[in-house]
Design a protein around this nucleic acid. Structure first.
Length: 745
DNA sequence: TCCGAATTAATTTTT
DNA sequence: TTAATTCGGA
């Protein structure tokens, strides 16, 4: 008997919910995963639903893994049969199962973003389109977005000459993908949705397939994902979606918050449950987070509360620059550790990866062990991708992107000229690159030396493929690739520190294949390749007691005793990119991001901002983030270096003594702001801080005149060659202006 | 074909 | 600033 004692009233209601669609708005730390796992346990354990007819979808492999683990505890038997997986893995599974009806090979390769980009580049070449006018990255992005909106090449939205060209590229791209027997990430979802839409029999089959569908992080779904979920559950209409519109931080990846906000329009008979009790954070931290996100206009009304104690006030630390910030962060870490927090329960968050370096240096100097989450992923490393490309070619000879990747790696004298000839042959005859290789090898009009090189490459791949088809283990094949293609030798000959690291990575790759063979139900090469592309995050082994450094995005779903958020300055967080779109939506997403960041903290929240910051080789001076001032003054206390004076020279070095510093909480520079300006800015009227630091003769907040744009207000000053200033002009928006074109007004 | 200099661009990144 | 990509010359 499953005990529901651990659940509160709304949680229990969601778990026991009987019929029809249900949307659960689950605030941060309100126990949403618990609701999903208990509900599944209840369905299978109490209501005797068949586990293999229950589908739970997540976004990340990590979330899926956690769910499966928690389910295993609640449901000792049957838990393993429940379908728990990411959108992509679930679709891949269904696509392989129904490949014949859909008209694809069940051995399809899965292309990641880099592979798609390579494919676009190739199409560009075939169509003789300038790469600089149509950067592959941009075009691949457009195609990806189209697929997220369930639009094929024929439905691609065209509104100018450029999109017309992209549409053409898209069509050819699709053709080449088919030829290569490959599906990209977008295809995994779109092809299934499309197949259901065009094939009634398949639709009927799949609608029968699951009795219950549950979706986690529903606020992050995009259009196809909604369609997929909708189509899969229409028969039984047992759909439970769980999410938090305030934690929707992937709009730029196609996520549409409307999916959760308007769920009741899509499913008019939907039940709505809100989980508003937070079990994670102190009341003060929760208030801080809420007061920021509450300023957003479009959100589902809800108020989180907690029975946890008030806790300490949020610490706001003013720093001189990013190095000072790192130094003070180290102090905050030590202080938290002294208060009994394990390093593994402390994290430093930043808005962009570029901020991590200074922290790494400071932590290394301070001898504090840390790990950086994100950055280059294991399976994205060039050498790993190379070896995987060989393996993919063994599995699927027509995988053009992989063939092109390995054909001259290591170098075997098959250079650009030859590859051009290969691509031309493939394009004119409508065959794959692998087939074109054979054609050229057998062509009498080709130089004998070239034909010999091609023959040796083909012979190598064919013999490996032969071994693969004889059932040789994936790990043995990987070793064979390393030894027989000369890849390993190439690295050994190199004998640089980098090549050593690469060899180590390849050893690790082989090791991971061995692990896979021991654990997987079906230890085939195909299964391994699928896992590798769909599972981009390799779970690092529990690496001891370490501090965590990561972006706020990466922090979603995690929690720590102490959270330090760095770089809380205007332009930085809220971040504003190159052309400052003063988009309301963008600012609201930044606010949600801050909400996510703050709500990760259980006990201590430290917010840091620097008066001056070096970024991308420039010096920027920005006011501290409006998000700080949006926190109720009673819930924060402010420490750190004194604010710079107007026109003051840069503070002398000895203002920041390295030694003999007073303890963290008796900092003599402690200042508290509770003046009129705070409330003025809180209402969004002004970006101007009390700081009057100047640069290039222009000061923050100053009114300036520009010949074309008229009078505006200085929002940021950026040192460099030439110095630039960010100015907001009423009616023109925010512009970056070279300082000499401005004069004080 | 390959290497090093020049040029360019720069959030966030679940799969 | 840095890192990736492109370009030009040997």
């Amino acid at each position: 008997m499953l005990s529901l004692d651990a659940l509160n009233a709304p949680q229990r209601e969601a778990v026991l919910h009987e019929r029809g669609p249900l949307v659960v708005f689950a605030g941060a730390g309100s126990g949403k995963t618990r609701v999903i796992t208990y509900r599944i346990a209840h369905l299978v354990g109490e209501r005797e639903e068949r586990p293999w007819r229950v589908l739970a979808v997540t976004f990340t492999n990590k979330a899926a893994g956690e769910m499966r683990e928690r389910l295993g505890k609640l449901l000792p038997q049957g838990g393993a049969d429940v379908w728990v997986g990411t959108f992509h893995a679930t679709c891949a599974k269904l696509l392989r199962k129904h490949a014949a009806e859909i008209g694809i090979k069940s051995s399809f390769a899965i292309y990641d973003e880099a592979d798609s980009k390579a494919m676009v580049a190739r199409v560009l070449r075939d169509l003789d389109i300038d790469e600089r006018r149509y950067p592959p990255k941009l075009v691949a992005g457009a195609i990806e977005r189209a697929k997220q909106e369930a639009r094929g090449p024929d439905d691609f939205k065209v509104f100018d000459a450029e999109t017309e060209v992209i549409k053409r590229i898209y069509a050819t791209y699709e053709e080449r993908m088919r030829q290569s027997g490959a599906l990209d990430f977008g295809d995994l979802l779109f092809r299934l949705v499309y197949a259901m839409q065009t094939n009634d029999k398949l639709l009927a089959t799949l609608q029968q397939r699951f009795d219950h569908v549950l979706v986690d992080e529903f606020q992050d779904t995009n259009h196809v994902q909604l369609r997929l979920v909708h189509d899969l559950c229409m028969q039984h209409r047992s759909l439970v979606v769980v999410g938090d519109d305030d934690q929707s931080i992937y709009r730029w990846r196609g996520a549409n918050r409307r999916n959760i906000l308007d769920f009741r329009d899509q499913f008019p008979d939907a039940t709505v449950i809100k989980l508003e009790q937070n079990y994670r954070s102190t009341a003060r931290i929760l208030r801080a987070a809420q007061s920021v996100v509450q300023r957003n206009l479009e959100r589902e009304p809800k108020t989180l509360w907690t029975s946890n104690p008030d806790g300490a006030r949020v610490t706001v630390v003013r720093c001189h620059d990013e190095r000072d910030e790192a130094r003070l962060a180290v102090r905050a870490v030590r202080d938290a550790a002294q208060a009994g927090h394990a390093l593994s329960d402390i994290a430093i968050f930043y808005r962009i990866h570029a901020q991590s370096r200074v922290f790494e240096e400071a932590l290394r100097a301070a001898n504090i062990p840390y790990r950086v989450v994100g950055g280059v992923r294991f399976y994205d490393r060039a050498e790993v991708k190379d070896v995987l490309a060989y393996l993919r070619v063994l599995e699927n000879p027509d995988d053009d992107v992989s063939v092109l990747r390995v054909v001259n790696t290591p170098s075997r004298g098959i250079g650009k000229a030859t590859i051009d000839r290969l691509l031309d042959t493939a394009a004119t005859r409508g065959i794959s690159v692998a087939e074109a290789l054979r054609v050229l090898r057998d062509a009498d009009d080709q130089p004998a030396a070239l034909r010999k090189k091609l023959e040796s490459f083909l012979g190598l791949v064919d013999s490996l493929r032969e071994r693969a088809s004889q059932g040789e283990a994936p790990s043995a094949l990987a070793r064979a690739v390393l030894d027989e293609t000369g890849y390993k030798q190439m690295l050994e000959t190199d004998d640089t520190p980098e090549s050593d690291a690469r060899l180590e990575n390849l050893e690790e790759l082989v090791g991971s294949i061995v692990d896979f063979e021991e654990e997987a139900e079906e230890p085939t090469l195909r299964a391994f390749l699928e896992i590798v592309t769909l599972q981009t995050d390799v779970d690092e082994v529990a690496a001891g007691d370490r501090l965590t450094l990561m972006t706020v995005h990466a922090a979603k779903g995690l929690e720590f005793d102490t959270v330090i958020v760095a770089g809380l300055e205007e332009e930085m967080f809220p971040y504003r990119g190159l052309d400052p779109g003063s988009d309301r939506e963008e600012l609201e997403e930044e606010r949600r991001l801050a909400y996510v960041a703050f709500t990760r903290a259980r006990e201590r929240l430290v917010l840091m901002h620097a008066s001056l910051r070096h970024l991308f080789g420039q010096t920027r001076i920005n006011a501290r983030s409006r998000f700080i001032d949006e926190i109720p003054p009673d819930d924060r206390h402010e420490i750190g270096v004194p604010p710079p004076r107007a026109s003051a020279p840069p503070p002398p070095r000895d203002v920041y003594p390295e030694r003999d510093e007073p303890a963290w909480d008796e900092n003599p520079y402690r200042v508290t702001y509770r003046n009129a300006k705070t409330s003025e800015r809180a209402s969004g009227e002004s970006y101007v801080d009390r700081e009057d630091t100047d640069l290039a003769g222009l000061r923050l907040g100053m009114r300036v005149r520009h010949a074309k744009f008229g009078i505006g207000q200085v929002r940021a000053v950026t040192e460099g060659h030439p110095p630039r200033v960010t100015v907001t002009f009423p009616g023109w928006g925010t512009k970056q202006i070279v300082a000499k074109f401005l004069e004080p007004a």
